[in-house]
Amino acid sequence: MSLNTLTFSVKGDAGAALKAPVHHGVVGSGDMEVLMEPKAQDGAVSVSIVTPVAGFDDLWKRVLQTFVSQSGLSDAHLDINDNNATPAVVLLRLRQAMTEAQAN
């Protein structure tokens, strides 16, 4: 009984690098929060997810891959606290975070 931490990296296209760090979301039930920070690492987007749910590593990777290729995000690190968010919610929160980052 402890939290699971999942870390991996997704290859990003050199494109939309973050100008400033952004925080978005609340860790409600079925929801998550994310910290997105710029990090120069040859385009890659590194991800660290802390979640009570184990066993969905591949799903997380696919969702993050989808987000990164759709958004064009690159050279960033993402810290996610999850509480059973569905893939759809994860994608929504990540896109909202990205929108906020670009608006600032």
């Binding site: 009984m1 402890s2 939290l3 860790v27 979640t51 009570p52 810290d79 606290n81 999850d82």
Partner: peptide
């Protein structure tokens, strides 16, 4: 919360 395996918030 971490010890109990519950979701945390930053």
């Amino acid at each position: 919360l971490e010890t109990l395996g519950e979701a945390v918030e930053f």
